[in-house]
Design a protein around this nucleic acid. Structure first.
Lengths: 219, 219
DNA sequence: AACAATATTGACCGATCGGTCAGAACAATC
DNA sequence: GATTGTTCTGACCGATCGGTCAATATTGTT
């Protein structure tokens, strides 16, 4: 054990761990915690099963590590809004950011969805703690927007849930969406069309004038 | 084997099968196909595992039977709309019906969601067949509403997906919703508030005047 | 009562599950 | 080149997986 055990920079170990995490994300996102097997993860990673456990300790440690990695990616969203912010800009940014996060981390998003479907056994503290506080604080600011006459007096919690669900749908239900559209993946054109549609409907539906959007003629 | 094998009315058998289906719906909806075990289903049903297989044949047959049962519950939604229909009434009915279906069959809805998350291995034909045709035909009618000036010229497919996702969210993400709200279940007041919110935002967002809604002051 | 059909279930099967461990292989230091 | 610490992995463990089956219990018919 060298002196810099904690902060040593072992590139080989990091690369292997990333390989395992990526493989595990695929399997967990498709089959959930119970349905995933370490053997399947090992096969995708191209490593013997014992090697997975050598690096990750246990199935559960690997799983919660993936959950934490995904939650960290969601930070910094809607973090710096104030009552003075422009609802049109904030909400359309929110919509686009969430859509892009889903496109960027589809497996991570599905992993999170599967965890919630299972009743969130590993995330109940997070949901009723950090995330609840995040929603409550954002909701207060949105409510102030309403009182300032910037938008309709809608319940901010339902608005947040609406944007979450509408954007997540295209990653977590990608199998349904592509099956119905008849394409393998969502095209860039469709992606842009969906973003414009959501911005149009949600902003207009909340009585927000699209101040900074000049080209909203075609949705 | 009696003469009326196909249409005999064995109440005992029906009751047992319903017990098994109900127990299986719980387990499959939480853990997906792979993660569910026949032993867990048997324990909830209060029957020995061999009895489950005697009635259902196999794990896969039991699973597809649950999928079919759930899909049948979704029929008759938006079936009788025409270009002459009132978009406000049709869409608000659509929203409320989907919200109620999610509340009525939470396990079935989650089962469906888990199947989609896994890549829809048992439903790909249904998605690209029946369901695709359903969406295309409904989209055509909605598009005609736009051309008749009844609503904005939005892409009907994204509108359908929006209503699906926004309503499903409260059943499939119930663990997240209740964790954030701090309540165990969704109250009747919240349910009504959500319905009104979605009607308000989606109808207004699509440029539909709420003709038959007299009390939309508080959303 | 006798017989046939159906329902029930404990015992068992090979396969796979998550996890352990001893030892081989490898790398770094002296 | 010997020593030491780390990485790697085949073999193995008890438990559980979906599924089979023979034996038993129950029910229905005559």
């Amino acid at each position: 054990m060298t002196a810099d055990t904690a902060n040593h920079e072992n590139a080989s170990r990091d690369r292997i761990e990333q390989t395992i995490l990526s493989a595990a994300e695929q399997v967990f996102s498709q089959h959930g915690y119970r349905g995933a097997s370490l053997q399947a993860i090992a096969d995708i990673a191209g490593l013997p099963k014992a090697n997975i456990l050598y690096y990750m300790g246990s199935k559960q440690l690997l799983y919660v590590r993936l959950l934490n990695r995904m939650m960290n990616r969601w930070n910094a969203v809607l973090e710096d809004i104030t009552p003075d912010s422009d609802p049109a800009k904030v909400l359309s940014d929110f919509i686009r950011t969430k859509m892009m996060l889903g496109q960027r981390y589809p497996e991570g998003s599905k992993l999170f969805a599967a965890e919630i479907l299972a009743g969130a056994p590993f995330l109940s503290n997070y949901l009723s703690g950090e995330l609840k506080e995040w929603v409550v604080s954002r909701a207060e600011i949105i409510h102030q927007w309403s009182q300032l006459g910037k938008m309709d007096d809608v319940d901010p919690r339902w608005l947040i849930f609406l944007i979450w669900s509408a954007t997540q749908h295209y990653t977590e239900y990608s199998a349904q969406v592509t099956g119905i559209l008849g394409t393998e993946v969502l095209s860039e054109t469709d992606f842009e069309s969906i973003c414009r549609f959501l911005e149009h409907v949600i902003l207009k539906g909340c009585g927000i004038s699209a101040s900074h959007l000049s080209n909203d003629s075609s949705v």
